[in-house]
Design a protein around this nucleic acid. Structure first.
Length: 552
RNA sequence: GCGCCUGUAGCUCAGUUGGAUAGAGCGUCGGCCUCCGGAGCCGAAGGUCACAGGUUCGAAUCCUGUCAGGCGCGCCA
C-alpha cells in the first residue's frame, strides 16, 4: 500500500534532522498489531546520524502532522520501527479510488513509452511445441502484458530458425517415412525425428504428390518438401499459440536475416570496432573482453557461419528497428549462451542494459505421482497441445505462471484437472465469478454501482484487511514488471482470493454480513467494496492472460 | 574440473529486494453440512529455512566454504 504523502513527510522530517536525500520506505507489517504501515527509517538513519534509533523515531514522529496525513496513531516498536495506524476513513476513501480507476487500476506510466521487444518460444519449426515451450509462452506473454500495463510499447516476437541443419534433418526423416509408406526399406536417420507427426507429414505429401516422392529425391524434391514441411510446422505452432491465447506481432525468420545483408553489416560493424581477428583460418569475436569465458568463432574456417553470427545480426537488428530493450525468454539449456550474447551486444556498443535474458526451467508433468514422458503424436515429449486439450488454456497458463521461472516445476495433472476450489486457478476465478453473481442476484448493473456512497458501514476488520490487500495491487504489478516475474501477481491473486472468499463466506454463517438484503446504505457500501475487489481480480487475471468468468 | 540455477512443512511452492512471531495450496487429523459419496465451510497439527562460518541493531534473503540436485561448458544449433 502506497502513501506518498506520508513517505514525503517522513523524508522532509529526516532532512530536518540532518539526513537529506533519503528515501522513506513504507511497508505492510506482517502482523496486525503492528498497524497498517511501518517504516524502518529511524534504524536506517541511526548509524548515519550516530543516534539511537528509538530517539530518532520519536523525533521523526514529532515532525509529522499526523492528522493531515490520515494517521491515527504512530507508535515506536521493537528496535526502532514506527508503526502507523491509518484512519479507517482514509482506507474507505481509497476503495472509492479503485472503483473509479476501474480497468486502469494497477496501470502505471513509468515505462515512458519505451519500446520493448519480447522474444519468446522461438521453437525450431521441426515439430509440435512441447510443454517447455508452453511455459516460455505463458511467461513471455505475461511479461509482455506486465510491460504494457506499466507504460511500455511492447512487441511480441517469435524467431524462426528456418535455416539450420535441423530442418534438413526433419526433411530426411520425412523422406524415410515416405519410402516406408511405399513399402521400401528405409530408416529414420541417426538423430532424426521419430514422432508420429513425421509420418503424418509423409502421408500428406503422398496425398498431394502421389508416387513422385517414393524414390530418391533430387534438389527439386528436397526444396519442395522443405517448403511444405516448414509451412506446415509453422502453421501448427501458430495454431497452438493461438489456442494458448498468445498472439505474436512478428515472426522473424533466420533466413530473412541471411537475406537482408545484415550478416555482412554486422561483420563490418564489429570489424570497424577492431573486435574481430583471424586465427586458424576462422574469424573470431573478442567476447572475452566483455565478460565471456572465451572468444567465439563467427565465421568457420570453411567459410560458413556459426549459429552465433546470425543471432548477433538478429539482435543488432532489434536495436536498428528502434527497440530500447530486447528481452529473450530462453530455456534453461541455453543459459550458458547468455554471457556470450551479452558480450556481443556490448561489443556492438549497445550497452549492458539493451539485452536481457529470462531463463525458464524445465517442466516435469506428473499424473498420479508418476512422470508423464511421451505424447502419442510427438513421441519423445509431452506436447503443449496435449495439455491444452486435457486441462484447458486457463489452467495451463496459471500453472506455468504460478512459479518463479528459475524454479524447476512439476505440473500436477491431477490437481490441474480438479474442477473445484482445491485448484488454485478455480479458486481465483470463483472469487471473481462470485462477485459477478452477487450483482446478478441483486439485479444490479455493475457499471452503475455508485462509488460516491457513504462507506462508513464498512467496519469489519476482515474487510479492512482485504482493502489493504486491494491497495497493494499497483505495487505488486510494478515489482512484477520490473523483475519480469509474473508469479508475483499469481501469489497476490491467491491471497486476495482467500480473503475475498472468506469475506464472502462469513455471510453464509451470519446473514448480517451479506452484501445483499441489508439496509440500503449497508448494501451500497458493501457493493462498492465488492466492486473494487472484482476489479482487482479481473485486472490481475488479465495481466496473466487468464479469463475472469461471469460464472463457473 | 569450471560456470549458472536450485535447496523453505510429508508433497508442490510463495516469502514485500535486509525487518518484527517464516506463509499458502495439496495431503493428514478433528468439527459442521450431506440419505450416501463428492464438493463446500470452520479449525488443528506439521519447520535445525540443506550444512558451517561471516557481515549488523536485525539474515530464509548479502558474503565465504561444504554437501545435494538440475543445466551448460563445440569452428553443433
Amino acid at each position: 500500500m502506497r502513501h506518498p504523502e506520508l513517505a514525503r513527510a517522513l523524508e522532509t522530517a529526516a532532512a530536518d534532522l540532518g539526513a537529506d536525500a533519503v528515501e522513506a520506505k513504507l511497508e505492510r507489517p506482517a502482523v496486525l498489531e503492528h498497524g497498517d504501515l511501518a517504516t524502518n527509517l529511524a534504524m536506517v538513519l541511526a548509524g548515519r546520524l550516530n543516534r539511537k534509533p528509538r530517539d530518532l523515531a520519536q523525533n521523526l514522529i514529532e515532525r509529522l502532522d499526523l492528522g493531515s496525513l490520515d494517521v491515527e496513531s504512530a507508535e515506536i516498536a521493537g528496535p526502532g520501527f514506527i508503526n502507523f495506524t491509518l484512519s479507517r476513513d482514509y482506507l474507505r476513501r481509497r476503495v472509492r479510488d479503485i472503483a473509479d480507476a476501474n480497468r486502469d487500476y494497477g496501470r502505471a506510466d513509468w515505462g515512458e513509452g519505451k519500446a520493448v521487444n519480447v522474444e519468446f518460444v522461438s521453437a525450431n519449426p521441426t515439430g509440435p511445441l512441447h510443454v517447455g515451450h508452453g511455459r516460455g509462452a505463458a511467461l513471455g506473454d505475461a511479461i509482455a502484458r506486465l510491460l504494457e500495463w506499466t507504460g511500455h510499447r511492447v512487441q511480441r516476437e517469435f524467431y524462426v530458425n528456418d535455416a539450420g541443419a535441423q530442418i534438413e534433418n526433419l526433411v530426411e526423416s520425412v523422406h524415410a517415412r515416405c519410402r516406408q509408406l511405399s513399402g521400401q526399406d528405409a530408416e529414420v536417420p541417426e538423430g532424426g525425428y521419430h514422432g508420429e507427426y513425421v509420418t503424418e507429414l509423409a502421408r500428406e505429401l503422398q496425398n498431394v504428390h502421389g508416387e513422385r516422392l517414393d524414390g530418391p529425391w533430387g534438389p527439386e524434391e528436397q526444396r519442395e518438401v522443405r517448403d511444405f514441411v516448414l509451412e506446415r510446422m509453422q502453421a501448427e505452432q501458430r495454431d497452438d499459440m493461438r489456442a494458448f491465447r498468445v498472439e505474436f506481432d512478428e515472426f522473424r525468420t533466420e533466413s530473412s536475416v541471411y537475406g537482408s545483408g545484415q550478416i555482412d553489416a554486422t561483420i563490418a560493424d564489429l570489424d570497424q570496432r577492431g573486435l574481430l581477428y583471424e586465427r586458424e583460418g576462422a574469424r573470431w569475436l573478442g567476447t572475452s573482453s566483455f565478460g565471456d569465458d572465451k572468444d567465439r568463432v563467427l565465421v568457420k574456417s570453411d567459410g560458413s557461419y556459426t549459429y552465433f553470427l546470425p543471432d548477433i545480426a538478429y539482435h543488432r537488428d532489434k536495436a536498428l528497428r528502434g527497440f530500447n530493450t530486447a528481452i529473450d525468454v530462453w530455456g534453461a539449456d541455453h543459459h550458458g549462451y547468455v554471457p556470450r550474447m551479452k558480450a556481443a551486444i556490448e561489443a556492438l556498443g549497445l550497452g549492458t542494459d539493451f539485452f536481457e535474458a529470462v531463463i525458464v526451467q524445465l517442466v516435469r508433468v506428473e499424473r498420479g505421482g508418476e512422470e508423464v514422458k511421451f505424447s502419442k503424436r510427438a513421441g519423445e515429449f509431452v506436447t503443449l497441445r496435449d495439455l491444452i486439450d486435457e486441462v484447458g488454456t486457463d489452467v495451463t497458463r496459471y500453472f506455468f505462471l504460478e512459479r518463479g521461472s528459475q524454479q524447476q516445476m512439476v505440473f500436477d495433472l491431477d490437481l490441474a484437472k480438479e474442477r473445484s476450489e482445491k485448484n488454485p486457478v478455480y479458486k481465483v476465478q470463483y472469487a471473481h465469478a462470485r462477485l459477478r453473481s452477487v450483482y446478478r442476484r441483486g439485479g444490479i448493473d455493475p457499471n452503475k454501482i455508485e462509488h460516491d456512497v457513504d462507506l462508513t458501514p464498512i467496519v469489519e476488520p476482515a474487510a479492512f484487511e482485504m482493502i489493504k490487500t486491494l491497495l497493494d495491487f499497483p505495487e505488486v504489478v510494478e515489482a512484477a514488471a520490473q523483475n519480469r516475474e509474473p508469479h508475483r501477481v499469481v501469489a497476490y491473486l491467491e491471497e486476495l482470493a482467500n480473503q475475498l472468499n472468506s469475506w464472502y463466506h462469513a455471510g453464509t454463517r451470519d446473514e448480517s454480513l451479506r452484501v445483499l438484503g441489508q439496509e440500503p446504505s449497508v448494501t451500497a457500501a458493501r457493493l462498492t467494496l465488492a466492486r473494487a475487489a472484482e476489479i482487482v481480480l479481473r485486472n490481475g487475471l488479465e495481466i496473466l492472460g487468464i479469463e475472469a468468468p461471469e460464472q463457473m
